[in-house]
Simulated scan of single mutants.
Amino acid sequence: MRLAYLAGGAISLLLGLVGAFVPLLPTVPFVILAAFCFARSSPRLETWLVGHRRFGPHIQAWRSRGAISPAGKRAALFAFALSALLGLMLLALPWSLIPLLVALVGGRWIWTRPSQ
């Protein structure tokens, strides 16, 4: 199981790094997931990630208060809105309502998280 968590952490961290350069692909949620996986597989990698100057504060805020930065909230809500809009424009009914529903539920959940 340790290897599965280690692989999951590495894949999540890689996706987070890609998300830093690809629009609409989130970064921080993948880094938080990587920290979760590394906590169960590699204390050394977890310590490095939690102490990272860029990602560490986001991980610590999430772990201590479930908090998301205001910029992170804005980016996530924008991505949800854009996905819902594209779904409404490009998909036929009733399939076009799925991205809208996901955006409403996910966006509400993010909006209600404490701010960092």
Score class of each variant (00 low, 15 high):
22 V>Q: 10
23 P>H: 10
23 P>D: 12
23 P>Y: 08
23 P>E: 10
24 L>K: 08
25 L>R: 02
27 T>N: 06
27 T>M: 06
27 T>S: 12
28 V>Q: 02
28 V>K: 03
28 V>T: 04
30 F>L: 00
31 V>T: 06
31 V>M: 04
34 A>Y: 00
35 A>N: 01
35 A>E: 01
35 A>K: 00
36 F>E: 02
36 F>C: 00
36 F>G: 01
37 C>L: 05
38 F>L: 06
39 A>C: 10
40 R>F: 11
42 S>F: 08
42 S>A: 10
43 P>T: 02
43 P>N: 13
44 R>A: 15
45 L>I: 00
45 L>F: 15
47 T>N: 11
49 L>A: 01
49 L>T: 03
50 V>F: 04
50 V>N: 06
50 V>R: 12
51 G>A: 11
52 H>N: 14
52 H>F: 06
53 R>N: 08
53 R>E: 13
54 R>K: 12
56 G>P: 13
56 G>Y: 08
56 G>M: 06
57 P>R: 07
57 P>K: 07
57 P>M: 11
58 H>G: 04
59 I>A: 05
60 Q>K: 12
60 Q>L: 11
60 Q>G: 02
60 Q>H: 11
61 A>Y: 03
61 A>L: 06
62 W>T: 01
62 W>M: 03
64 S>D: 15
64 S>M: 08
64 S>F: 03
65 R>W: 06
65 R>F: 07
65 R>E: 14
66 G>V: 00
66 G>M: 03
67 A>F: 04
67 A>S: 13
67 A>R: 02
68 I>R: 05
70 P>G: 15
71 A>V: 14
71 A>G: 15
73 K>Y: 09
73 K>F: 09
74 R>H: 12
74 R>L: 13
74 R>I: 12
75 A>Q: 13
75 A>M: 12
75 A>K: 11
75 A>T: 15
77 L>F: 07
77 L>C: 13
78 F>R: 13
79 A>W: 04
80 F>V: 03
80 F>M: 14
80 F>S: 05
81 A>G: 15
81 A>F: 09
84 A>M: 05
84 A>R: 01
85 L>C: 15
86 L>Y: 10
87 G>E: 05
88 L>M: 11
88 L>V: 14
91 L>G: 05
92 A>I: 10
93 L>D: 10
94 P>Y: 06
94 P>C: 08
94 P>G: 09
94 P>I: 02
